[in-house]
Amino acid sequence: MKASMTDRIALLGRSGLDVVGTLGRSGIFLFQALAGRSQFGNAFGLLVRQLYAVGVLSMVIIVVSGLFIGMVLALQGYNILSGYGSEQAVGQMVALTLLRELGPVVTALLFAGRAGSALTAEIGLMKATEQLSSLEMIGVDPLKYVIAPRLWAGFISMPLLAMIFCVVGIWGGAMVAVDWLGVYSGSYWSNMQNSVQFGEDVLNGLIKSVAFAFVVTWIAVFQGYDCDPTSEGISRATTRTVVYASLAVLSLDFILTALMF
């Protein structure tokens, strides 16, 4: 009991060192995985396999979520805007909300849950079953063979998924606003086209999702690589991936939004 104060300070110091150490290791990890060219003839095949696992398999959840979020936005927007008699602006509202915020952010969150956790678990399992060590002993760098293709697949997939998410959402919004609520389709689209700027809105949204892709994939892959090679360690790492990635995406979103708009 006497030493509790110093104990606590020491604990603080130790966890601080832990955090710094982890950050350093993850940075070195990222650099070693991405620096230099792949030494494999079939690097393209490896990437394709991961694009399938990370990107194609995430399509369903992205499309369905995008559709519903677009529909909900249109419904809510219509209810609010019709109070001012400007329900034709619903298209503009749906499009801007999706492109600037919800598209990149929700895609990143869903991606962290769907693909990120799967990446962590898969790599953690490969570590636990000594497949990573085995690769090392065969003379193959697991950072290049296992990690790098997964990182690239994440970087490439998420922006594409975000774009698909936006399009599906806008289409879903049009379905609700135009077909159901009876907003004139010409004003839905022309209002949207007049207010949405390609550079300002579409490209900035794309940049956001590229940044999120980088952060989420990095966290997911590193957590898998760095986890305790036990079943308990893997499950903890998977949880950490989702939590850290979500927090990182939301805070990064604030920073990017402040810088961009």
């Binding site: 990107g55 492109l99 594409l160 399009v167």
Partner: peptide, 24 residues
């Protein structure tokens, strides 16, 4: 490879739609 190709195409197509149809 085929499904991945379709996926990438869909993503690029989405970008094109956003450029043409949404931002005019």
């Amino acid at each position: 490879e085929l499904t991945v190709g379709v996926f990438i195409l869909a993503g690029l197509l989405a970008l094109a739609v956003l450029a043409v149809r949404v931002s005019g």
